[in-house]
Structures are given as structure tokens and as C-alpha cells.
């Protein structure tokens, strides 16, 4: 068995050997240090890279999550839009129904008001058995309910030859007596057909072209005429309810006046039961 040559102690080694050894060691350490430095740098770079990749990964995950959330949100929006469209359609339906109900309600309210007006007019017309009070009630209907500004009420004269004015308002030049064959009043008296103007401004009419002319009847007999020459400024046309007032006046005014007159003639005596029986009651 061979053994390595003995290493002489440092003090016995040649100086060149020591120098060479030191240089070698120094070089070795330098290289080691540089290598270590490079490794550390590389490690640092790798760490940095890893960190960058992790950040990138996190961002991408976030992006994916965000895209998913957006997709979900878009789906939700679509659903909500659909729901909104349904709700809007339901609201429109309800609004249409509500509007129809409102219209019906307004119409019913108006109808009730008209009926109340007719009831009041009818009640007031027959509330008295006094001729002047009855005529006053007719004037009230014309002024307060119809809105007549200028008008006259004519009754057939005793000799049945002319129409005599028994009440008027706002007519300075109105004739107190009319020929029953002439003018619009004469025509209405003869035919028994009411004349109601539906065009033009009712508030300013000439005497020869009144706004309305209504026959006054007792049963089938025409005994007078109401002529409305002009209406109030705020009443430019007749309303449906005015036609009902005209019918009321046409059918009831004359009988109310005549009844009041006969009652006055009878000294305000109510006829006895016998008189009713005589008439087949």
C-alpha cells in the first residue's frame, strides 16, 4: 500500500509554493464569491419573476372573476329589463283602466249634476201656485241654469191672434206683441218644433236670429214661445243638459203658469173631491 508523499511543514515549503497556493485560494474564493453573487442575483430575479407571475395570475383571476360577474350582471339586467317591460305593460294596462274608470266617474258625476239641476228646476217650477212667482221661476231657470242673457217669454193672446210678452230680460227693443205667423217665434209657435242654434256665437245674436226658440205646450197644444236671443258671454254654446232644460220648460212652464192662473181665479181654493170624481179619477 502506497501512501501520499509527506507534505513538508509550511516553514519548510518553498516560498513560490506558498505564493501559488495563496493565489489559488484567493482565485478560488473570488470565483466562489462571484458565483455566489450570481446565484443570489439569479435567485432574486427568479423571485421577482415569480412575484410578477403571481401578480399577473391574480390579475387574470380577478379579470376572469370580473368577466363572470359582468356576465352574471348582464343576465340579471336582461331579466330585470324583461321584468320592467312586464311591469310597464301592467302599469299601462292599469293606467288605461284607471283612466277609463275616471272618465266614467266624471261622466256619472256630470250626469248626477245634470239630474240635480233638472230636479231643482222642476221642483222650483212647481213650488208655487202664484203666477208671478211661477214666471220668476221660469226666468231663474233661463238665467241661472241655461245662462240666458237676453230672452222673452210669450203667451198666446186671448183672441189667439198674437203672442204677448209676459216676461223678458235684457231686451230693450223686444216687441211686446208678436204676430204668431211671423219670424222665428211664429214658426216655432206654428210648427211646435223647437229651434236651437248650434253654430255661431250664442252670446251676441240679432233679434231676428235668436239663439233658441222653444214652444210652450199644454199637452199637444202650443200656447206660447220662449225666445232666447243671446246667452251670457261665458256661455258660447248650448250643452246637452240645456236641451233637457228646454224640454222641461216646453212641457211644464206653460202648465205651471196656467195652473197658477186658474188657482188664482178660483181664489186659491183647492177643488173638492167631487170635482175629481167628475173627471173620472
Amino acid at each position: 500500500m502506497s501512501s501520499a508523499p509527506p507534505v513538508p511543514p509550511p516553514s519548510e515549503r518553498p516560498a513560490s509554493f506558498n505564493k501559488e497556493r495563496d493565489e489559488f485560494i484567493q482565485t478560488f474564493f473570488h470565483k466562489g464569491a462571484r458565483f455566489t453573487q450570481e446565484l443570489l442575483q439569479e435567485n432574486e430575479q427568479l423571485s421577482q419573476r415569480l412575484s410578477d407571475l403571481e401578480a399577473e395570475n391574480a390579475a387574470m383571476r380577478l379579470q376572469i372573476k370580473s368577466d363572470q360577474a359582468i356576465r352574471e350582471l348582464l343576465t340579471k339586467i336582461a331579466q330585470l329589463e324583461e321584468e320592467k317591460a312586464k311591469l310597464l305593460s301592467a302599469v299601462r294596462e292599469v293606467e288605461a283602466k284607471s283612466s277609463a274608470v275616471e272618465t266614467t266617474y266624471s261622466e256619472v258625476e256630470m250626469e248626477l249634476a245634470n239630474l240635480a239641476g233638472l230636479y231643482v228646476a222642476s221642483r222650483q217650477l212647481h213650488s208655487t201656485m202664484n203666477v208671478s212667482s211661477t214666471v220668476k221661476q221660469i226666468k231663474e231657470i233661463l238665467e241661472q241654469l241655461v245662462g240666458a242673457k237676453a230672452y222673452a217669454v210669450y203667451f198666446l193672446s186671448d183672441d189667439a191672434a198674437s203672442l204677448v210678452c209676459i216676461a223678458s230680460q235684457g231686451l230693450d227693443e223686444q216687441a211686446s206683441r208678436l204676430d204668431q205667423h211671423l219670424g222665428p217665434e211664429g214658426k216655432v209657435f206654428r210648427t211646435g218644433e223647437a229651434y236651437i242654434s248650434e253654430d255661431g256665437d250664442l252670446a251676441s245674436r240679432p233679434l231676428s236670429d235668436p239663439a233658441a226658440c222653444i214652444p210652450l205646450r199644454i199637452a199637444d197644444r202650443v200656447v206660447g214661445v220662449i225666445t232666447i236671443v243671446a246667452t251670457l258671454e261665458q256661455k258660447p254654446k248650448f250643452l246637452p243638459v240645456d236641451y233637457e232644460y228646454f224640454k222641461l220648460l216646453s212641457g211644464h212652464a206653460a202648465s205651471a203658469i196656467v195652473a197658477a192662473r186658474l188657482f188664482a181665479n178660483a181664489n186659491h181654493q183647492v177643488p173638492g173631491i167631487e170635482s175629481f170624481l167628475e173627471h173620472g179619477v
Partner: peptide
Amino acid sequence: DSPMMRQLLVFALAR
């Protein structure tokens, strides 16, 4: 002053 108008207003305001 018009009883007719008064009555009409009473009817209306009853609503």
C-alpha cells in the same frame, strides 16, 4: 239670493 241656485249648490256640495 236665488233659491234655485242655492238649492243647486246645496246638491252639489252634498257630494
